[in-house]
């Protein structure tokens, strides 16, 4: 699907308004009035959070599979991180292998994929070296931290400082399972990411999943850290998350992310398109906020966006 077709779809059937009483002034009352077709045609969605675990014999083939779905929904740019097998606490050899896959994807799809280097701060020296290989000297523009080390651990500080020098965007996975009791041993919460952020004021980071299913607690946890941005992706498309995030954080701190291929682009886009927020806010969330956050790194790399 090209962008024009996608926008026609949005304007006619897919993106519908919600509760009339709660609708901001510029949310259209009917689907046919959803946005301006030219605006939407020029939008192009940026996704802050995808993985390449889709079927395919090579990383490039897996990305091709994923892009077929992304294209049908107008997702233009994809922050790409981690390649299977998924390893909670990867050794340096394992995270280097995963990053090799992402490097191959970025090389093959330079117009679509932004690479995020996967690190495990438990192996700090090797992680810093990998940051140099993939971001300082390579084409990647961000860092992915998963469940190898809790976000408030001191090992993250040298990584954050170097990321700031490189203008790389950090996405830290967070989840709150059963009020935190169900988390993996080293799985971070938004509260722990807020602690890290407080040690690095002014440095923007992305709160991956924003606590997942318990996003209402996650949003509260990052509210007072203006550098932290809420990634909406990865949980069920439950009504209310987008509305609360915009209300509590402001739309400029909210990002569309899918967590594809595990999640569906559709289910995660649906929560933004169906939200009771303004069209202007949807545009920020679907593209402009992420573009703004990545622009320093993209400029440094000479990547046009």
């Amino acid at each position: 699907m090209n962008r024009r077709t996608f926008c026609t779809t949005l304007a006619t059937g897919a993106a519908l308004p919600a509760i009339a009483a709660a609708r901001p002034a510029d949310v259209p009352a009917t689907a046919s009035a959803w946005g301006n077709a030219d605006d939407l045609r020029n939008l192009g969605i940026w996704d802050v959070h995808i993985h390449v675990g889709s079927p395919g014999a090579t990383p490039e083939k897996r990305m091709e599979t994923l892009l077929r779905s992304a294209d049908r929904l107008g997702v233009e740019r994809l922050c790409t991180m981690m390649s299977p097998p998924w390893q909670y606490e990867p050794t340096p050899e394992q995270f280097r292998r995963s990053n090799d896959d992402v490097l191959a994807i970025v090389k093959s799809f330079p117009e679509r994929a932004f690479g995020f280097v996967y690190l495990n701060p438990r192996h700090l020296k090797e992680s810093l070296a990998e940051l140099e290989r993939c971001v300082a000297d390579g084409p990647m523009v961000g860092i992915k931290l998963w469940v190898g080390t809790r976000a408030n651990a001191p090992e993250l500080d040298p990584i954050v400082r170097r990321a700031a020098e490189l203008k790389a965007l950090i996405l830290q996975h967070t989840w709150i399972k059963q009020r935190g009791k169900g988390n993996l041993p080293h799985e971070s919460t938004p509260m722990e990411l807020a602690e890290l952020s407080a040690r690095h004021p002014g440095f923007p980071m992305v709160c991956g999943h924003t606590g997942g299913g318990d996003w209402a607690l996650g949003i509260r946890a990052i509210r007072d850290r203006p550098e932290l941005h809420a990634d909406l992706g990865g949980g069920d498309p439950v009504y209310g998350e987008v509305e609360m995030a915009v209300r509590e954080l402001g739309a400029s701190r909210v990002l569309y992310g899918s967590d594809a291929n595990g999640r569906s682009f559709a289910s995660q886009l649906g929560r933004v398109l169906g939200a009771d927020i303004s069209v202007a806010d949807k545009k920020l969330i679907l593209r402009e906020n992420l573009r703004r956050l990545l622009l320093p790194a993209l400029t440094r790399k000479g990547i046009r966006a």
Partner: peptide, 17 residues
């Protein structure tokens, strides 16, 4: 619905060929 956004299901019909 209305626990989930309706659009989340609707777009699944478009995401796959």
């Amino acid at each position: 619905a209305p626990w989930f956004y309706f659009e989340a299901a609707l777009l699944k019909l478009q995401e796959s060929e």
